[in-house]
Amino acid sequence: MIKPLVIMLALWTPFTTFAFHEGENITQTASNELKLDPSQLTIVDFFAEWCVSCRHELPVVNQLYGELSGTGVTFVGVDVDEDIEIGLEFQKSLGLNFPVVNDPKQQLIAEFKPVGMPALYYLYQGQVVKVRFGAITDIRAVILDDLSLLGVQL
């Protein structure tokens, strides 16, 4: 039998407490899996083929990846599709050039626990410095504004 106190605590706990927060360090396992370069600010973009917003945002992220090359900012995608073939075809259909880690066993997403898709995590030296969840209307402007607020000189 589930105790009422356990249920009350679960209901009182905000959903966002399960995700990495700004200022927290990610695990070494996640850092290794993402192949993070500690000298660069890396924007990790969680996405999936079924995510409608991802279809709109990923081409813009892909373009920014090329434009920001050599600035100390890079991107890594995490495709969370459980069927790797669907994920690979999706990536190919969008012509993604930035590195993508396929996460069919849901190990990375289980560590990060984003509360919405798509999800962007800005990481520097293993620390989360900014987080964005859900669809963003003008992803290009938002990312460039975020980078400016983080003090990145472009």
Rank of each mutant, 00 (worst) to 15 (best):
G66W: 08
I43R: 05
C51Q: 05
T42S: 13
N32H: 06
Q107L: 05
Q63G: 00
M117S: 03
T17H: 04
G70H: 11
R55I: 08
S69H: 13
L41E: 08
N32E: 11
N32A: 08
L64V: 05
F90A: 11
P38C: 00
P114G: 02
S93V: 12
E85P: 00
T137Y: 07
G95Q: 14
T42R: 11
W50C: 00
T27A: 03
A141I: 00
Q127N: 04
D37Q: 02
S93W: 12
L64P: 03
V60T: 10
L58M: 11
V101Y: 11
A10E: 05
T13W: 05
Q107G: 01
E24G: 01
R132N: 10
F112I: 04
V100I: 14
P118R: 05
F90E: 12
G70E: 10
N25F: 09
Y65P: 01
E82G: 10
H56G: 02
F46D: 08
A30K: 06
L120C: 03
G66E: 13
G95V: 14
V52I: 12
K113Q: 11
Y121P: 07
Q106V: 04
L58I: 13
F133W: 09
L108Q: 05
A48H: 04
P38V: 00
Q127W: 04
R140G: 00
F112S: 07
F133S: 01
Q28H: 05
P104I: 08
G87R: 12
D79I: 04
V44W: 09
S93P: 12
Q107Y: 03
D79C: 14
R140I: 01
K35S: 11
Q63T: 11
Q28R: 10
Q63Y: 07
G23N: 00
F15D: 06
F75K: 10
E33F: 03
F98L: 11
N62D: 14
K35D: 11
F112C: 04
A135V: 01
P99F: 12
V129D: 06
L68V: 09
C51Y: 06
V128S: 08
W50N: 03
V142A: 02
S93L: 09
A19P: 00
G116S: 14
I136C: 04
T13R: 11
L94P: 14
G87M: 13
H56W: 03
Q28Y: 02
T71L: 04
L9F: 03
V128M: 06
F18G: 02
V131G: 03
T16A: 04
G87D: 12
E82A: 14
K105M: 09
N97E: 15
Q107I: 09
V80Y: 10
G70M: 10
F98R: 10
E67D: 11
V52Q: 10
N97D: 15
L123G: 12
F15R: 06
E57M: 13
A19H: 01
M117F: 13
K113T: 04
V78A: 13
V52T: 11
P104Y: 08
S69W: 09
S53Q: 09
Q63H: 12
G72D: 13
E85S: 15
I86K: 15
Q125I: 07
A141G: 00
Q107F: 04
F46H: 03
S31R: 09
L36C: 08
V101F: 07
F75G: 13
D138F: 01
A48L: 02
L108F: 07
F90D: 12
L94K: 14
A48R: 07
N25A: 09
P59R: 07
L120I: 02
